[in-house]
Computed example of a mutant assay.
Amino acid sequence: MLGKTQEWLANQAKITPAVVIGLESAKRKLPDNHALSQVKGVLEANGLELLEAAEARGEGVRWKEPTNKTWVDCLRHGRAMLGISLDEMAARSGVGKYAIARLERGNQKRLPEQSAERLRDVLFENGVVILPEDRSHGAGVCMRPKLRQLPPL
């Protein structure tokens, strides 16, 4: 969300880029708590708020304060949470990958609302919720809360 590289984050957190890559990997086993603390500190110092899972929502990230960003500005971040490529998002949504890339970059004179809403719906169907900006917090993304499974009949 900050638009920075892994190398930048590693440098700011005083850890190696390999540690950042490991922290971001879905295959990691037990993360280094010191490294996590360092990364969290850098993100928070740069205006982000990490959200812990709660009953109403899963883990996520949002801007601590309003930034005048819209929910459309968070589409790329939602896709990143799922770890899916532009090609995969295009296949799932029916929206062309170049149209998705333009939407994610925000260089549109007129927002193609139907395409943006379809992308938001695909994110939601796959477990990601776009958090709109409100008076006290900026926009962001989070995972949907885990639905309670009903026991089999």
Rank of each mutant, 00 (worst) to 15 (best):
V61M: 03
N126L: 05
G3A: 11
S85F: 14
I130A: 04
G22D: 05
V39K: 01
E59Q: 04
G83N: 10
N107V: 06
A56E: 00
E88I: 13
G22T: 04
L23E: 07
C74G: 08
R62W: 03
E55G: 04
G47C: 00
V39A: 02
Q108K: 06
W8A: 02
V128K: 11
E117A: 11
E125S: 09
Q108E: 14
C142A: 14
Q38R: 08
A91D: 15
D87C: 05
V128H: 02
N107C: 12
G47M: 03
L150T: 10
A139M: 13
L103G: 04
Q6H: 08
R102P: 02
K97P: 06
K14R: 06
H137M: 02
P66N: 00
G22Q: 03
L75A: 05
S25C: 15
H137R: 01
R105L: 12
K97L: 05
R110P: 00
A101M: 09
E52T: 05
A54F: 02
R144Y: 07
A54S: 15
R105K: 10
V122T: 14
D73W: 09
R118M: 14
A53K: 00
N126A: 09
R62D: 10
R57L: 01
T70V: 07
P152V: 06
Q12M: 11
G83M: 05
S25R: 02
N68K: 08
T16S: 14
L9D: 01
N11G: 08
L36M: 15
C142N: 13
A53W: 01
Q114K: 14
G94S: 10
G78I: 14
E65P: 03
K29L: 13
E7Y: 10
L50Y: 00
W8Y: 10
V42H: 04
S115P: 00
